[in-house]
Design a binder for these strands. Structure first.
Lengths: 263, 263
DNA sequence: CACGCATACTCGTATAGACGAGTGGGCAAG
DNA sequence: CTTGCCCACTCGTCTATACGAGTATGCGTG
């Protein structure tokens, strides 16, 4: 016996409307969520309840849910129900995050920042190896054939939020501490400067798109969550590109912040 | 009589696999697209053809398509078919796009840049009015109650790519050319400087998320296309926030590019 | 030749039913 | 009381069918 839905929570359908029934249902649920009638993490009415309430078939209700899932508003849990997706706390990335003064302490920027915010940071999937440069990486680094690739995944409170790969030309990185799993205090940028590659500036390219199935797995992304794809190139004072860092971030976990001069 | 699918184009299902049938079909189509067996803009096999090829029901095939749509890989056209979504040319936004030297000509940055790229730019939905500031805008502008809002939509070759609203404190903008539909050569930043508000720097905040239904309409977004949400605040040399610009961009039309000093 | 309609193909919407699998609570046996 | 099972409820997957609506093509009529 499914309990009846509280009346007034959701409206009725308009049979004269051009709008498809499953869209009307999605509209009503979306509005109810926006108005706070369902709060974050709260369970929505079950499929069976909505079937009864609206007098439609189950597939129609599921269709409505799939719209809301695509919008990133709700997520379904097998055996439990459909829930309003809570907005996770976002991490702000400031444009000065690679300033030298942040490189002085022993720990990485990610760890320091997360500790300060009271969350529990982790880094895993550490892989460091030499490999063939892709066409794109080769172009960005100035026609190198092989590169040192450093891959790692960042987690906050157990949740993966970011997957990054740094590429460095072999003639710079091979045999140095940069090729070690732990690059030492201040990270690879500190090592690059010690090796005489004084950093001059960075270029960052930002795109947003839906994740590939691989990225969904690695970042454990809910449906309806895009990724931010950031490609940073580091240039030394000679004008040479000394590192390219390719980062894929869960878009619901980040706000990027840049400060630009108005010159 | 539906023509048989060319054999070898798509594989068979693995009935022993745990992976749901509609996911297997989506996987095969995705792989075929990635490998270039279907090129951009090309029509995929019709639902009926896939039903016959795989021996499944139509809803299963549609389910597969809806996965690929969610990933932004394909789009369906009623009465025509399902097509590999072409990647539109992207517009690169450089971080120096608001430099003074770009304000010298009479035309706006958007128009100049698009003309140079050989595409046909348009600006529409022009609306300029005074209104109550939202909580967020008020905070960013330093506790103002009412603001001047300038709304406009940008199109490239007839395709909407961006929707932007500028908010300015009334005590600065009221009665000036900034409150006119056409703010004159160099745009509102040029007017602000003439009014004695010399620009010092900008702050930009970047988020990515799935669009609201409104945004889907305004930007005519295909399913599976996220938006980039950029909020820029302009500060004058007194440290006062003189403008907040809230921009929603079709993510498949943009690459943002920033240059950062390594100080 | 030009126009208009019939038709076949496309995807869109909706129904009804079946079985599977994850979750959690209650009940019965130990 | 604890353990373990069963059952009810949840969403996940899949089939089969029906009709509607947009598109394109070709054929027949004027």
């Amino acid at each position: 016996m499914s309990p009846t839905l509280p009346s007034g929570l959701l409206g009725d359908l308009d049979p004269t409307s051009d709008r498809a029934v499953f869209r009307q249902i999605a509209d009503q649920l979306r509005e109810a969520i926006d108005r706070g009638r369902f709060s974050e993490g709260e369970k929505l009415p079950s499929e069976a309840e909505l079937v009864e309430h609206y007098g439609v078939s189950r597939m129609t209700v599921r269709n409505s849910f799939s719209i809301l899932q695509g919008e990133g508003l709700v997520h379904a849990e097998h055996g439990k129900g459909v829930f309003v997706r809570p907005r996770p706390p976002v991490r702000r990335l400031a444009s000065d995050r690679f300033a030298r003064r942040h490189r002085e302490q022993g720990k990485s920027a990610f760890i320091v920042e997360a500790d300060a915010a009271g969350s529990h940071p982790q880094v895993d999937s550490l892989e460091v190896k030499e490999e063939k440069a892709s066409q794109d990486i080769s172009t960005r680094l100035g026609s190198v054939r092989r590169v040192l690739a450093r891959r790692r995944r960042y987690l906050l409170d157990g949740r993966p939020v970011e997957f990054a790969t740094s590429y460095l030309p072999l003639d710079i990185a091979r045999g140095t501490q940069i090729a070690e799993p732990n690059p030492g205090p201040g990270g690879i940028y500190a090592r690059l400067e010690e090796l005489g590659h004084h950093l001059d500036h960075f270029e960052e390219e930002i795109r947003a798109r839906m994740p590939s199935p691989d990225e969904v797995k690695t970042l454990r992304l809910a449906s309806g969550v895009p990724v931010i794809h950031l490609i940073r190139t580091a240039f030394d004072t000679e004008g040479r590109a000394v590192e390219v860092c390719d980062t894929v971030m869960a878009a619901d976990a980040y706000v990027l912040s840049y400060q630009l001069p108005a010159t």
